[in-house]
């Protein structure tokens, strides 16, 4: 098992190296002069030149690259010019916020989408099947900022059930002591149900927004793959052996149908993690997506490099997890390793 994980990591090394090179080059060809931005609108050309020199931007590209890689090796992702903090600190602060939001959104989505997909496949052509199609289509066709705003309007403005959409925690509560960076988990570890409830009430609307959006791919994939498996020979054998419908659907059909669903989950998760900028903006969520966007607008390349690299590494880890999950579900994959 350990050897397999090691092998998988080894195959990911080239792609990580590729990502490092590409992001480095991309940030260098992006329009906008970092030194000029950093110096401010009133700076003289001389001052800009000086800043450029201190940032090492006057050096040839290969030299800059070597320095960049050396810094990476020491765990130094550079400094954000806008926040003035080391990029690694910024990311360490903001990544858990995004991850917590995305994970909860995904969990909600799975809890609704998978049973819905199974039902739609088992009762193909029924009312449930059509309802499932409508819900999924509606969910994916409404842009997230729109569903997010509607939710805020209904649940905050009209009903007043949820708190103001202003970040991860109401200002009356103090941040729970840092353990995982996930407020829900940290507050539980600290034994603080008040904070837990507060964090959850802040989290629930953006998470539902994400869930509505990601419902479609998961439902459709579950349905399609269940339909394929339900018409396969071994399900016929199971039915011909008189197994109960529950057993046939859960043990025989669903476990086999899970493989494509897991693949989709991985894709949806990595997509959401990087692409939920809009949700973060609507809910003033201090996530990694809005951080990257702000840096991009400011031509602040260190955070962008850091962001892309973090995403790449996360993506590699996620794929590794999915591969391992494959092995748990399907013994044939375990063998090939």
């Amino acid at each position: 098992m350990l050897r397999q994980i090691g092998k998988r990591f080894a195959t990911a090394i080239p792609s990580v190296i590729g990502v490092i090179i590409v992001t480095f080059l991309l940030t260098r060809v992006l329009p906008g002069d970092t030194a000029a931005y950093f110096a401010g609108p009133a700076a003289t050309p001389q001052a800009i030149e000086e800043i450029r020199k201190t940032l090492g931007l006057d050096r040839p590209l290969p030299e800059q690259f070597v320095r960049y890689v050396k810094d990476l090796g020491r765990g130094d992702f550079g400094k954000s010019l806008t926040t003035g903090q080391p990029v690694i600190t910024d990311i360490a602060q903001r990544l858990p916020a995004s991850a917590e939001l995305t994970l909860l959104g995904l969990i909600i989505s799975i809890l609704i989408a998978v049973p819905l997909g199974i039902l739609a496949a088992v009762k193909q052509g029924s009312l449930i099947d059509h309802a499932c199609r409508v819900v999924a289509t509606a969910g994916v066709s409404l842009p997230v900022f729109f569903t997010g705003l509607i939710l805020v309007y209904v649940f905050y403005f009209i009903l007043g059930w949820s708190p103001a959409p202003l970040g991860r925690l109401d200002i009356y509560y103090s941040t729970p002591p840092h353990v995982t960076g996930f407020y829900l988990i940290d507050s539980l570890i600290a034994g603080d149900p008040g904070t837990f409830r507060a964090a959850l009430s802040q989290l629930i609307l953006p998470a539902v927004t994400l869930a509505i959006f990601s419902l479609a791919p998961i439902t459709r994939m579950t349905r399609a793959s269940m339909l394929a498996v339900l018409s396969s020979d071994f399900v016929r054998t199971a039915r011909a052996s008189g197994l109960s419908p529950r057993r046939v659907i859960v043990t025989y059909a669903f476990r086999n149908a899970m493989l494509p669903v897991v693949t989709t989950l991985g894709m949806v998760f990595s997509f959401l993690l990087g692409a939920n900028v809009l949700v973060e903006k609507v809910f003033a969520w201090p996530g990694i997506g809005s951080y990257a966007i702000e840096a991009l607008i400011a031509s602040d390349f260190a955070p962008i490099q850091g962001f892309v690299l973090t995403m790449a590494i996360l993506y590699v880890l996620l794929n590794l997890m999915i591969d391992m999950l494959y092995g748990v579900i399907d013994p044939r994959v375990r063998l090939e390793g």
């Binding site: 020979d233 071994f234 016929r236 199971a238 476990r255 086999n256 399907d330 013994p331 044939r332």
Partner: peptide, 11 residues
């Protein structure tokens, strides 16, 4: 059944 390998649950 015909095709015994497909007639058994593969996992």
């Amino acid at each position: 059944f015909q095709n015994p390998r497909a007639a058994l649950n593969p996992i």
